[in-house]
């Protein structure tokens, strides 16, 4: 692991992060870095603590360890402070506010301050998701899964963030919609670094430059994405493809989405 000299090239550094849900440790001593550009993917079997890692970074669950944003410790801060330092979050299951309209969902996400909403960002979002502009007055709960994912992504992209944490954006979506979401993410990745949790290996292949593999709450592999994707043995060993009945990640987005362990306490 690289340390001091590379400090400023990483937007996020995580060291010795552990997290607990209902008293049970779900993330153990995890450490990795996210460079200041491109997509870093977090991989692993179902229920190994990927979602919990993201939630722990944001302080949404109880955690210990160090989280550095732009070289600055943020692990002692409350969630909203960390977010205001420029961390956009696209949660698992989208978590749009179903009773609010699309416009209200977006208005709620707008922030002021150094990493807040800018006119350029608004234009970017409007350009990426023309559908949402048309549906501004529709209640978010009545949108399709793919449209809700767009709302969730748009909420994060409205602000001039330093980093996006994106959790399983393609989960449960039809293949054609998966392509749309991946396209939007690719466009977003040109403007902001992304830490992406994803099960779909095709999406990883298209977007990710680096991978971090988590197993049983620990980091078991880090490296360039092509290195992992090009090595079927490594994939099988780390992600359990064909191994004792565990479904292959990325074989079919519709099937990989089922049986997913819920992230945490809400």
């Amino acid at each position: 692991m690289s340390t001091a000299p590379t400090m400023n090239t990483n937007v996020l550094e995580v060291r010795g992060l552990s997290a607990r849900i209902a008293g049970q440790e779900v993330v153990h001593d995890v450490g990795f870095e996210v460079p200041a550009s491109g997509v870093t993917a977090v991989l692993g079997r179902n229920g190994v603590g990927k979602t919990s890692t993201l939630r722990a970074i944001l302080g949404l669950i109880e955690r210990t360890g160090e989280v550095l944003l732009d070289g600055r410790r943020v692990d002692g801060e409350r969630t909203e402070r960390i977010v205001r330092r420029g961390v956009g979050y696209v949660p698992e299951d989208r978590d749009v506010f179903a009773g609010l309209t699309v416009a209200e969902n977006l208005r709620l996400a707008e922030r002021t301050g150094p990493h807040g909403t800018t006119p350029e960002r608004r234009r970017l979002v409007d350009g990426l998701f023309p559908d949402l502009v048309r549906r501004a007055q529709q209640r978010a709960g009545t949108l399709s899964g793919g449209q809700q994912q767009m709302v969730s992504l748009a909420r994060a992209l409205l602000n001039d963030n330093r980093l996006l944490l994106v959790d399983e954006p393609t989960k449960g979506l039809a293949p054609r919609i998966v392509d749309d979401v991946a396209g939007a993410l690719a466009a977003a990745a040109r403007t902001v670094p992304i830490l992406l949790v994803e099960q779909n290996l095709k999406v990883i292949e298209r977007l990710a430059e680096r991978v971090v593999v988590i197993d049983a709450g620990r980091v078991v592999h880090t490296g360039p994405a092509p290195e992992l994707l090009g090595d079927p043995d490594l994939i099988q060993r780390l992600l359990g493809v064909h191994a004792d009945g565990v479904e292959p990640p990325g074989a079919d987005p519709a099937t990989t989405a089922v049986g997913h362990q819920k992230g945490g306490a809400r």
């Binding site: 849900i21 209902a22 008293g23 049970q24 109880e62 945490g264 306490a265 809400r266």
Partner: peptide
């Protein structure tokens, strides 16, 4: 309501 958190009783 929220899920119970913290330590096991």
């Amino acid at each position: 309501m929220n899920a119970p958190d913290h330590l096991p009783a």
